[in-house]
Structure formats: C-alpha cells, structure tokens
Simulated scan of single mutants.
Amino acid sequence: MITAYLYQNQSLQSIELTVSDAIPDGTLWLDVYQPEEDERQWLSSYFVEEVPEEDDFNEIEASARFYTDKDGLHINSLFPQRLGTDLKAVNVSFNLRPNLLITIREEDVGLIRLLRNYLRLGRLDAETPADLFLELFNLKVEYLSDLIEDVYTVLENVGDQALNAQELDDIFKLITMQEDANGKIRLSLLDTQRSLRYMNRYYRKQLHDDNVKDLKEMLADVDSLMPHSQFIFDKLNFLLDAAVGLSGLQQNKIIKIFSVAAVVFLPPTVIASSYGMNFANMPELDWQFGYPMALGMMLASAVGTYLFFRRKGWL
C-alpha cells in the first residue's frame, strides 16, 4: 500500500496511490506499507540506486543501516511496538531527500499512526521532509521514555511481591518479561542514538537551524535515558537474585521439615524395630504391659527429640 501525504495550509492530506499513478506535486511524505512486487517496481523508478529490501532492514552493521548516496540520506531504524503485554522492535527504512521523505516498512508502527493523527489535528507543524523525520524521531524518544517509566512501575510492584514466597512463579515471569522489554528499549535507544548522530554528522548542512536544535535536544534526551536503562538492568539482576534466593530459602524450609520429621521419628523406629524382632529370649513379649510400654517409649522418644530441637532453636 502506497500513501502520499501533502501538508498544506497547516493541514494534512493523504492520497492512496496505485502503480499507475505518479507522485503528486507537493508531496512531503511517501509511506510504503508491505509493498507488493509491482509496487516495488513502481517505486524503483524514483530511486537511482536499488529499492531497499526487507532483508536490508534487519542488517546490524552501520554501513547497511546508515548511508548516503545519490538518493539522499538512508536510515534503517528500530521502532518499539506494543503487542498486548509484549514489546516488539520493528524496522523502518527511511530515505530523506530535500523535497521528499520515503518510508518503507513491512509491519504496522503505532508511532507512524500517531504522527499522522497529530498532523491531521494540527498539533505538529511540519513544512519540510526533515521536519517530518525529526518529529517522528521525537515521538519515538518520548515513547521510549514512557516505556522506561512503565518498566520502573512494574519493577516496584515486583519488589513488593518478592517478599511473598507464594508468588515466586509470577515474579520470575514478570522479571523475564521486563528484561526482554528493557533489552528492546535499550536496543531502540542505541539505534536512535546512532541514527541521529549519523544525521548530525553527514546531513547537517541540509538542515535549518531549528532542525539542528531539535536534533541536539533529542541526542541529549537519548543520552539521559541510557543510564536509566542500565539502572533497570541492574535492578532486574538484583530482583532475579533475590527471587532465586527466596526460592532457595523456601525449598530449604521444606527440606528442613522433612529432615526434622525423619530425625524425630528415628528413635521410635529403633524401638519398634527392636521389639519387632522374633528372638526367643525377649521377656517383654510375654509381659502384660509390654505393648503399652513400647508405645510409651516410642511416644516419649519422639516428643523428647522434638522438644530438644525446639530448645536448640532449630525449629
């Protein structure tokens, strides 16, 4: 699906294009979502170099994610995407030109929808493709900040729950989910930092002063968020160690109960075993009070062992 966006008189107009259409005059943004082969062929007519493929989006080396050629500035960037309670990182390919921004993506991105809504409502003022690009990255940085705050909130609740041994299974699950989310947040932060630094280094001359100011502010915001992400990793490790320790204590308590029970019933077992032997010369076998005596000895030995443990503070 190909959508052209024209931003005129502080209002956004969107036009759905087909392969038989040309890009309308005054288009600032061309958004290509899950392009078919014929749409890629149509798009190739607007590229001097080749159109980025889906495999190119997932490359991690800097030379494949950030580069400049005859078509302008190319940046492949990760965008966080909420899927229920899970967090996913989605790659979006950007081609920034002096008069046009082209985005190519294979998956839906909530921040792109948010950008469109803000433009329609007039909450953002974007007059150039660079304005659109920077506004989208600004929304991305703000969203990453919100995600970090959400992780903080969850970890505070996990810290309280860690004192309740009955909820250890839920705690381990929450810690695992938050570790995965924080890893993707940190990856998006690093990717955003690399993207903006590359733009600041190799595309700065094409930006006006306000763009450069916004760029520096976003870099400062990303730099300030990185320590928070590292702190979350440290806190996650601490909570995981605490949960493992509590789990070990819980298991030790159970093993301790079985151990004490085994020792408490050891003397009665010895007595019962002794009088369970079938030797001829055992006077107590013919004694009238032999059976009650054996039961009394077993009970007294069990109670005595239990009281001894209590006195030593082992129970």
Rank of each mutant, 00 (worst) to 15 (best):
T3L: 13
A4N: 06
L6H: 08
E16F: 00
P24W: 04
W29Q: 07
Y33H: 14
Q34F: 00
E37N: 14
R40I: 08
S44K: 08
S45N: 09
S45G: 06
F47A: 07
F47H: 10
F66D: 14
F79N: 13
T85Q: 13
D86V: 10
L87W: 04
L87I: 09
N95G: 02
N99R: 05
N99S: 05
L101I: 11
I102F: 01
I102Q: 03
I104T: 04
D108E: 14
D108T: 07
R116D: 13
E127F: 02
P129A: 15
E135M: 08
L136I: 10
Y143F: 08
I148D: 00
L155V: 01
E156N: 12
N164Q: 12
Q166L: 14
I171W: 00
T176H: 14
E179W: 00
E179K: 13
D180F: 07
K184C: 00
R186K: 10
D191H: 06
R194T: 07
S195E: 09
K205N: 10
D214G: 03
L215R: 03
D221C: 01
S224M: 10
K235A: 09
A243T: 09
G248E: 14
L249I: 06
N252Q: 15
K253S: 06
I255W: 05
V264M: 04
P267H: 15
Y275A: 07
M277A: 15
P283F: 03
P283K: 09
D286H: 06
D286C: 00
G290E: 10
G290P: 04
A300N: 13
F309E: 13
W314V: 13
